[in-house]
Structure formats: C-alpha cells, structure tokens
Simulated assay, not measured.
Amino acid sequence: MPITHKPFAGLNPRVTGFRCIRCGILLPVADYLEGCPACLDQNRPASLAVEYREFPASLDQLADWQVYSDHVTLGEGNTPLVSLEDLASETGIGSLHLKNEGANPTGSHKDRMSRFVVQRALEAGAPTVAAASSGNAGVSLAAYAAKAGLGCVVVTTSEMNPNWRRAIEMHGATLLATETPERRWQVLADRVRVGDWYPATNFSVPPVGSNPFGVDGYRSIAFEIFHELGTSACTDIIVPTSRADLLWGIARGYRDLQTAGLVEQPPRIHAVEPFGRISKVLAGQDYRGIFPGHSALTSIGGSTVTYQALDAIASCKGTAVVIEDEAAREDQKRLARCGFYLELSSAAALTGLRKLVAQGVITSDAAVVIVGTSNGFSEFQPFAHPIAMVG
C-alpha cells in the first residue's frame, strides 16, 4: 500500500502520477515504497516510474524534465564526458567516451538519486532517511541528509570498507550492521513500515528498484549525454549493473527524449554484471529467482534481478554481458593510466565493452559511452610492497 505523507507542494507541475513499468497502471502521486501494489499482490514485483504529462521542446531548462525542479544540492550532475581516443582504437570501435560520474560531490552517481530522496523526505516531514548500502549509496545519502539537516541511518554489514564507514560517520549518520547483506533489507523494512525511516533503497523481497523519486534523478545522465553528443554520436551505452536503478534511469531518459521528438532512435543500453543474473533471466529464467555468485565487484554484486533491468534492456534493444574479476582489474589499471582512477565495479564498463566487441554485439563503427559510476578513492586495498624510501 502507498504511504501518503504531506502534500507534494514542490513537485514539478508536469508530474501527473506514477505508472507501473510492468502492468501500466497509473496511480496518483504518493510514496509507493514497495513498487506497484497491483503487481505486488500478484507476486510479480515491479517498479513505478514518475509520469509526466508532457516534456519541453528542448533541454535548455533541464529542471523542467525532473521530478523536482528545485531540490537540495551539493553541485551534482553535469559530470565530464571525456573522449578516450586511444582506448577506442585499442578496442576497435569508432569512438569512445567516458561519462565520469566519479566527479559528483561524494564520488558516485548515487548523488543524482540522493538529492531527490532527501527533497521528498523534507517535503514529507520525515525526520530520518535510511538506506541499505555497502558503500556509495550510504555515503551519498548521509551527505545530502547532512546538507538538509535530516537524520540518516545506513544499514550495512561488518565488512564495510573502512573508507566508506569513515565518510558516513563524518557526515553524522548512524551505521547499523547486520550479519548478512540480505538481513539489511528486513531491518530497513521493519523500521520503514512503522514510519520511523524514509527509505532511499529497496527493502522488498523479491526486490524492486530504489525509491522512485530518487531513481528519476538518473534520467539526467541521458539528457546530459544527448545534450553534448547528439544522436548520431552515441550508438551504445554500457552500464555496470546490480539492481538496475542507473540502467533503467538512463534508458528511460532516452525514451523520454524520443517521446519529446528530440531523438528518433535511442542508443542501445547494455548491462555489465559480474556473474549471470540478468543474462540468465534474458535466457528464460524467472526474474524473481535467486542467482548466487561471488565477485570482487561488490558495488554490482547481489543475487537478485529486478523487473526494471529487463524493461531497460528491452526498451533500448540492449543486452547483458558477464565479465570476470581479473579482466576488470586489468581495465581498472588501464583506465588509471589514462588518468581515470575508477572503482573496480566502474572499470567493469570497459571490460564489458571489450567482451561485447568480441561477441560482435558492438561493431567497429560504434560510438560508445561507458559510464564510470564512481571514483576509486574510497577503495581499501592492502599494499603488497612498501613505498620506496629516499634519503
């Protein structure tokens, strides 16, 4: 059931409600924290998307395309889109760009989501926001909550990277640890359902996407890429993916551009994963299943699939590609030698590109954008050798 808080006074006036991405039902504006209630009743969980009555004729005022035209901000967005000519030649494609989301204030794409979650929490009169997170989402939410003067709780595990832990605590948020990643969702669910916390992330099993107000923020990546490259200079976008908030947001952004008549055909949008989950569902398995696996790519780990991943891939004629940890480590080094130190899970986008080229999915005339979801400065790795000493 939806949870209705205070009125939506600051909402973009073009917003008419929330539409289910699976069954298509249109619902009034409210806080649907577990996705579409009709699909949930059928045990077919699916996310809801912000519905707009129309879109502007241009991207001159990007705020007019977003759920909140005015919101809490730390200066997120408008991240660099950098040409990687050497890597384009190395991978055998026409052109390659990196959308460097690590340049956001807290170092990841999550800032685009946190701004709208916190804005809605303020509007709703919710005193505390919360997330189940292993790192980037928790740091981002803690920062934006601090900016807004809200309380913040991040439910994690005892294995959390100490760099992320320090950042979250420095922002004044509370950390709670559970024995397993799955238990985080139950802790979050219990407190959300009694009204103690306003959630940024999913807590349902099987999962849906994160808070739909927040996921709407990822559409802006598509708008920025289109604004800078236009249509013909982008044929494929490659996105490191777990439960597909970012993947879906970019895909939806391009579909909205198409609806507005600004794009004739959106680029293909591909998901990169560390072990088969989405790819298995695309091959016929039930998206509600459990797909266990182990990987060092923790930011895109997890054993579940969301319906929004399938919707994003189908709507933009993409696919999912599985990559190996060691190949991602090599590409992390390769990108660093180009000047971009990305988190391992972010560098996986380049690894996915290589594999898609090898499979013939991406051809030599392609114009590709890889999304670097976060920088590598928060990574914690022990060093095998000491720093060289000088006299």
Score class of each variant (00 low, 15 high):
170 M>W: 13
151 G>Y: 04
344 L>A: 04
189 A>L: 05
126 A>T: 08
345 S>K: 03
113 M>Q: 08
240 P>W: 03
254 Y>I: 03
117 V>G: 01
296 A>I: 13
297 L>N: 03
247 L>N: 00
316 C>R: 00
207 P>R: 02
211 N>T: 10
93 I>W: 03
256 D>W: 11
378 S>H: 11
45 P>N: 08
233 A>H: 08
324 E>N: 15
68 Y>C: 08
109 H>R: 10
351 T>M: 03
41 D>Q: 15
25 I>A: 14
380 F>D: 08
318 G>I: 00
144 Y>P: 00
355 K>E: 14
355 K>H: 12
373 T>V: 06
207 P>L: 04
65 W>A: 00
319 T>P: 09
203 F>R: 04
173 A>R: 02
337 R>E: 12
26 L>M: 15
140 S>Q: 00
307 Y>G: 01
211 N>Y: 01
296 A>V: 08
218 Y>G: 05
156 T>I: 09
161 N>R: 07
32 Y>H: 09
231 T>V: 15
135 G>M: 07
253 G>I: 02
3 I>V: 14
104 N>K: 02
31 D>A: 09
346 S>E: 00
334 R>T: 12
45 P>F: 04
259 T>P: 11
157 T>N: 08
346 S>N: 05
354 R>Q: 10
209 G>N: 10
249 G>K: 06
214 G>I: 08
309 A>V: 08
103 A>C: 13
211 N>G: 08
113 M>G: 09
215 V>T: 15
17 G>H: 02
265 Q>I: 13
85 E>Y: 14
318 G>S: 01
180 T>N: 13
349 A>P: 05
370 I>H: 02
108 S>R: 07
343 E>L: 10
378 S>A: 15
109 H>G: 10
260 A>I: 07
35 G>T: 07
190 D>I: 12
305 V>K: 00
54 E>D: 14
9 A>H: 14
52 Y>H: 07
261 G>F: 07
9 A>G: 15
154 V>H: 02
137 A>H: 03
114 S>N: 02
24 G>Y: 05
384 A>N: 10
89 S>M: 14
256 D>E: 12
376 G>C: 02
252 R>C: 12
277 R>V: 09
281 V>A: 04
298 T>Y: 13
384 A>G: 13
88 A>K: 11
200 A>C: 11
218 Y>N: 01
111 D>H: 11
154 V>S: 01
36 C>Q: 01
